[in-house]
Amino acid sequence: MSGAVPFGEWLASGLIVLGASFALIGSWGLVRLPSLMERMHGPTKASTLGLGAMLAGSIAFFQLVKGEWTTHEVLVSLFLFVTAPVSANMIAKAHLHRLRQGGQPGPAGAPAAPSESSDWATYEAPHAGTPGAFADE
């Protein structure tokens, strides 16, 4: 029954379905979850696992069905793996900044403050002895 379908096509199809499911679930999390800090979980998983699986499926398709290697997918996924945490961190920083300026926290409340001797890195001056501390000198 499935003997006529080559293995590469099975692999590519499974990876495409997996990646698209992750993208859908990530966007569903963006709609469903109550506050911004929780909402950031879904799309970051969609961008790493979802797009990673879809790009791996694309590599598998072009190699095992068409018989040629493509490297663009590796570039795209490497770039996304590097930038997804940075953009999530930037959005979280903007959110903390707006909360401090009197923005309304979501139903889950504001994020808990760090320990009493420190503050969020967004607001604190760099500690002495760390690479960013040259501004104090």
């Binding site: 990530g26 963006l30 911004l36 959005i91 707006r98 309304q104």
Partner: peptide, 23 residues
Amino acid sequence: PGPEDRILALDTMVINVIGLIVL
């Protein structure tokens, strides 16, 4: 509710459009 939610939504839209282009 806030602008940071809209930034996150735009970021996710870009991710999903990249997925569409790959497909």
